[in-house]
Simulated assay, not measured.
Amino acid sequence: MIDTIIFDFGDIFINLDKRATIDGLKKLGLSEWNEDLNHLNFSFEKGEISRENFLNGIQKHLPNASLNEIENAWNAVLLDFPLKRLEFLQKLSLKYRLFLLSNTDAIHIETFEQANGVSFYSDFYQCFEKVYFSFEIGMRKPDTEIYNYLVAQHGLIAKHTLFVDDKKENTDAAFSLGFNIWNLQVGEEDVTDLFDKKIISQ
């Protein structure tokens, strides 16, 4: 019996346009996303480097772009957060222990909060027993340490826990540790379809 659900954030609750950031950076002169930028992103997501060092690191690849232009392109990935998902989550929180576990960075979270306002994001965060952002805890999915950290912090039992994420490498890692999983297919499924998946009961 599942009594706990761990949710990803991006493309589960807030819609994303992952191409928009790449396209935005290319308009600023980036030839292609490369391994250096990948490493920079992962370091920022784990809180290992500051906002300034992150933006300056990207600027090295885009010498003609301003830091403000780079930040705007970086935030282009963030789209809307449908109210029906928040309402669904609020009902779910009455019956299940809920956690948020997201690979994200300080810029994206600050932008999300500013765009949606205190009332909305407070209502969202309050649905969860605890909210975990990778940049705050220094770990990121799919590294198994981050799942084990949640288990240890909250006394979770993997076989009684459902992990929901749109990235297969993340759900694969959770599955290997004994979690129930839902690898949500973006564009084909919605988090509000959870009961229809017959994984948990209403």
Rank of each mutant, 00 (worst) to 15 (best):
K95P: 10
H61A: 15
R51G: 05
L37S: 08
L79A: 08
F88C: 00
Y96I: 05
L83Y: 09
L79H: 07
Q90D: 06
N103K: 02
K91I: 14
L98Y: 07
R97G: 02
F81W: 02
T21D: 01
L40A: 03
L98R: 06
S50G: 11
N103C: 03
F81M: 10
E45G: 07
K91Y: 11
Y96G: 01
G57I: 05
N64C: 10
L86Q: 07
L98P: 03
G47I: 02
I22S: 09
F42M: 15
I49Q: 05
A73T: 06
L40P: 03
L101K: 10
F54T: 02
L83P: 09
R85F: 06
N72F: 13
R85K: 10
L25V: 10
N34M: 11
F99K: 02
D80P: 01
S43N: 13
A73H: 03
G29R: 07
N34Q: 13
E69S: 12
P63N: 06
N38V: 14
Y96L: 10
Q90V: 03
K60N: 14
L92N: 01
G24V: 00
N34G: 13
I58Y: 07
S50M: 11
R19N: 15
I107F: 12
E48G: 12
L25D: 09
T104Y: 08
D80W: 01
S31F: 12
V77F: 04
L25T: 09
H39C: 14
N75E: 11
L83H: 13
T21I: 08
G47D: 04
L37I: 13
S31A: 15
E52P: 08
L100N: 08
S66F: 08
L86S: 07
N68Y: 11
N41F: 11
E71N: 11
G57E: 01
A65N: 03
K27P: 11
L89M: 08
L94T: 15
F81I: 08
D36C: 13
I107N: 12
L89Y: 09
L55T: 06
P82G: 05
S50A: 12
G24D: 01
E48N: 13
F54M: 04
L83D: 15
D105C: 10
Q90W: 05
A20C: 11
E69H: 05
H61P: 12
W33E: 03
S50F: 05
R97C: 03
A73S: 13
I49V: 01
E35F: 13
Y96T: 09
Q59L: 02
K60T: 14
L37Q: 06
R97D: 13
F44A: 07
